[in-house]
Computed example of a mutant assay.
Amino acid sequence: MGGRARLRNAAATAQRLRASAEQHFPVLTELTARLLSTNLLDAATRLAAQAFLTAVPLLFAVAAFAPASMRTQLAESLRTVFGLTGPANQEITELLGSPTGKDLRQTTGIIGLLMALISATSFSRAMVRVCERAWLLPKAGARIVAWRWVIWILAVLLVIFFQGPLREGFGVGIWLGLPVTFVISVLVWLWTQHLLLAGRVPWLPLLPGAVLAAAGSTALWITARLYIPTALNKALNQYGSLGLVLTMLSWLIVLCAAASFAVTIGAVLAQGPPLNRYLTPRRSTGDAPAAPPA
C-alpha cells in the first residue's frame, strides 16, 4: 500500500507541475504540441531528399551551360561553404572546371535544363509545406503559389552563388564574413517565409523564425567546415561516389531539420506571449472603418 500511495502522490505532483507549467509558460506547452503534431523530423527528411534531388541536376546544368566565370565562382563558393580539400575538391574541380562543358551540353540539352528547373520546384513545394505546417495554415492554391516556387529556387541559386565572397567578408576575412552572413541569412529566411506563404503572414511575426533559422544555418556552416572535408574525403576513399551521396544527404538532413524546427519554433514564439504583443499588428479603435452613409 505504501508503494501505491507513493506512486499516486508522484502522479498527482506531476500533474500539478504540468498544470503550473501550462499556466505560467503557455508557449512551452504550445511549442511541444506543435513540434509533435507536425512530425518535423519526417518533414525535414523529405525536405533534405528533395534538396539533394534538386541540387544534383542543377549542378550539372550549371556545369553544362554557365560561362566559365560563373562555374569558377560557384566552385569557389562550394569550397568556402564546405571547406573542401583533397578528393572532394578534385571532384568539384573536374565537374565545374571544364573549359567549355561541350560534352555536358550535348548530354543535357535544353530540354534537360528545363526539366531540371521544373523538377527543382519539388524542393520549393516541400519548403512550402514546412512553412504552412509551422503556421497551421491550409494549402494555398497552386495558381497563387506556382510562380513563387520558381522564383524561390532561382533566388536560392543566386544566394549559393555568392556564398564564397560573402562568407569571406569580400576579402576582408571571416571576422566580417560571419556577421554579414548572419544578417543576410536573416533577410533571406524572412523573405522565404513571406514568399512561400503567399503573404498570408505579415513580415514582423516571421522575424523570430528567420533569426533562429539564420542562427542555425550559420552555426552549421562553421560545423561543416570542420566536419565535412574529412568526412567527404574518407567516404570517397572508402565507398566512392556512394559515400559522397550518403555524407551530403546526412548533412542536408541536419540542415533541413534545423530549418524546420527554427521556422516552427519561431511561429510559436511570434504567436505567444510576450512577443505577440510586439509582433502582431493590432487595430486601434480609432482605426476602425467608419460606418457607411445612410
Results as ranks from 00 to 15, higher is better:
residue 167 R to V: 13
residue 290 A to S: 12
residue 65 F to W: 13
residue 210 A to S: 09
residue 130 V to Q: 04
residue 26 P to R: 05
residue 208 P to E: 13
residue 177 G to A: 07
residue 149 W to N: 06
residue 169 G to F: 06
residue 181 T to F: 09
residue 125 R to T: 13
residue 59 L to V: 10
residue 208 P to C: 15
residue 60 F to W: 06
residue 114 L to E: 04
residue 255 L to S: 11
residue 29 T to S: 13
residue 1 M to N: 02
residue 65 F to Y: 09
residue 24 H to R: 05
residue 253 I to A: 12
residue 3 G to S: 14
residue 155 A to K: 04
residue 209 G to I: 13
residue 200 R to Q: 12
residue 95 L to R: 01
residue 97 G to Q: 13
residue 125 R to H: 11
residue 91 E to D: 02
residue 223 T to E: 07
residue 242 L to F: 11
residue 194 H to E: 13
residue 65 F to N: 00
residue 183 V to H: 03
residue 249 L to K: 03
residue 19 A to P: 03
residue 279 L to S: 00
residue 140 A to M: 02
residue 65 F to L: 02
residue 192 T to P: 04
residue 94 E to Y: 01
residue 110 I to H: 02
residue 130 V to G: 07
residue 39 N to C: 09
residue 235 A to W: 11
residue 194 H to T: 04
residue 138 P to H: 03
residue 144 I to M: 06
residue 236 L to Q: 06
residue 228 I to L: 15
residue 80 T to S: 12
residue 256 C to R: 11
residue 119 S to Q: 14
residue 289 P to A: 11
residue 91 E to R: 15
residue 119 S to E: 02
residue 35 L to K: 09
residue 288 A to P: 01
residue 88 A to C: 10
residue 48 A to N: 04
residue 176 L to E: 08
residue 8 R to W: 03
residue 27 V to E: 13
residue 199 G to D: 04
residue 236 L to F: 02
residue 141 G to P: 13
residue 235 A to Q: 05
residue 200 R to C: 03
residue 251 W to H: 06
residue 90 Q to M: 08
residue 263 V to H: 06
residue 68 A to R: 06
residue 118 I to L: 15
residue 276 N to M: 08
residue 173 G to E: 12
residue 178 L to N: 05
residue 93 T to F: 00
residue 145 V to W: 05
residue 214 A to G: 03
residue 139 K to A: 10
residue 12 A to C: 05
residue 83 G to A: 14
residue 105 R to K: 08
residue 191 W to I: 01
residue 279 L to H: 09
residue 130 V to A: 01
residue 17 L to Q: 09
residue 214 A to V: 10
residue 219 A to R: 11
residue 68 A to G: 04
residue 68 A to P: 04
residue 21 A to K: 01
residue 239 Y to N: 08
residue 270 A to Y: 11
residue 215 A to N: 01
residue 197 L to V: 03
residue 182 F to T: 07
residue 29 T to Q: 10
residue 82 F to Y: 15
residue 44 A to T: 06
residue 13 T to D: 15
residue 53 L to E: 09
residue 207 L to G: 07
residue 76 E to L: 10
residue 70 M to L: 11
residue 99 P to G: 02
residue 75 A to F: 05
residue 62 V to L: 07
residue 214 A to M: 04
residue 87 P to C: 05
residue 102 K to F: 06
residue 268 V to Y: 05
